[in-house]
Amino acid sequence: MKAILRHELSSCFTSLTGYVFAAFLLLFAGIFTMVYNLNYQVANFEYVIGQMSFIFLIIVPILTMRVLAEERRQKTDQLLYSLPLSMTQVVLGKYAALLCMFLLPTAVICLYPLLLSAFGSVYFPAAYGAICGFFLLGAALTAIGVFVSSVTESQAVAAGLCFVVMLVNYFLNTLADYVSSSAFASCMAVAVVILLLVLVLWRMTRNSTFALMTGIVLEGALAAFYLLRGDELAGVFPEVLSRLSLFERFDTFVNGVFDLTAVVYYLTVIGVFLFLSVQSMEKRRWSE
């Protein structure tokens, strides 16, 4: 794992990616600090961080697009498979390298509240809590990006797909407001999600009986639940949507609350998507 980490880091910093990424992040941090703290004379650094979350839409795809997709295109994944390394080590090593690259500019941003405190009173716990939340959000989105990169062979497709996923997630909260919250609508939405799940199952296992049976069982359970206790489904779908929003959780940090459930939530997302990436890499061996 250390070998992969070292290799990834040195290739990021021999090419431009690492520098462009850091420069981009710092540029936006600088602009927002300028606007909020200096122009508007506000001492709350957490607002700056709060405004910056949207830049993940751009930098996460740039950071993660090549990480696994490029291995596959250059056929260097064959080297990784034949080396005495497990896929878990490979994925963790690569993810750790991405986190290091992200940590570097974040460390620089950590200096800003200190600098600002020379000219006014900065509430440090809120500022650093927000930076912490910012890092966790970035780490969770990066894990999703790694997974997206593992399912495709082309960097461009990985970047595009990753951007779409980030964008949907970013607007998920707004989207949830427009979704009908009636019990029937929720039931239909869950039914569609189950159908999608069945499709994915079928794609991955190529076992139509298994996928079909799972689908029938799940849809049956849903229908039964709707008929028996339909009222409880009301509002479930918009609720689930907003719960899925990674950006929504981040706002609690900006508002000055260090939310442990959010930390656990982000760590879970990281764990799940890294696990999926490992599985996706393992699966390539079966279907190549």
Binding site: R6, S11, Q74, K75, Q78, S82
Partner: peptide
């Protein structure tokens, strides 16, 4: 095992020296 696939699995943006050091560490 040492394996050379049909298409040599090289990281084209690295030097031979760096590449072999990486493989050595992984081994």
């Amino acid at each position: 095992l040492g394996y050379l696939p049909e298409q040599p699995p090289l990281y084209l943006d690295r030097t031979a020296w760096e590449y072999l050091h990486f493989v050595g560490r992984a081994k």
